[in-house]
Computed example of a mutant assay.
Amino acid sequence: MTDGSDSETKPAYKRVMLKISGEALMGSQQFGLHPPTVQRIANEIKKVHDLGVEICLVIGGGNIFRGLQGSAQGMERATADYMGMLATVMNALGMQSALEDLGIFTRVISAIPMDQICEPYIRRRAVRHLEKGRVCVFAAGTGNPYFTTDTAATLRASEMDCEVIFKGTQVDGIYDSDPKTNPDAKRYERVTYDEVLQKNLKVMDASAIALARDNALPIVVFSLDEPNGLVGVLNGKGRYTVVEPS
Rank of each mutant, 00 (worst) to 15 (best):
G94T: 06
L217C: 03
A140V: 00
Q73S: 13
G32R: 03
A24L: 09
K167N: 10
V164R: 04
K46L: 05
Y193M: 05
V171L: 04
Q96R: 15
T192V: 08
E226G: 00
P245W: 01
S7M: 13
I112E: 07
T88R: 12
E163I: 02
K132N: 13
G94C: 06
Y188V: 07
N43D: 14
S177V: 00
S207H: 14
L224P: 00
G238N: 04
Q39G: 11
Q30E: 15
L86K: 12
P145G: 08
Q198M: 13
E8V: 01
D50Y: 00
P36C: 14
R156L: 05
H34D: 13
V233S: 04
R77K: 15
A12Q: 15
L33D: 04
T2V: 05
Q198Y: 10
A206I: 03
G52S: 09
R125Y: 03
G60K: 04
T79K: 10
A98E: 02
V203I: 03
F222M: 01
P145I: 04
F147L: 10
L211V: 02
D81W: 10
N91C: 09
L224N: 02
D150L: 05
N43E: 15
P120T: 10
N43C: 12
I174M: 09
V171Y: 04
T2Y: 11
V137C: 08
R125I: 07
P179Y: 08
A152Y: 11
N91W: 12
L230E: 05
G141T: 00
F166Y: 11
A212L: 10
Q73M: 14
E159M: 13
A92E: 10
C162E: 07
N228M: 14
Q73A: 12
R123N: 03
T169F: 02
L211S: 07
E76P: 02
S223W: 00
A92Q: 09
P218I: 01
E131D: 15
D3N: 02
E195Q: 07
N63H: 08
A206N: 13
D6A: 11
D225I: 02
A208P: 05
A72T: 15
Y240Q: 05
R15P: 06
P11T: 03
T148D: 03
K19T: 01
N144I: 02
K14M: 09
V135S: 09
N63V: 07
H129Q: 14
V53G: 05
A126N: 11
R107P: 00
K167L: 01
D205T: 06
A24P: 01
G67N: 15
G236T: 05
Q170M: 12
G103D: 08
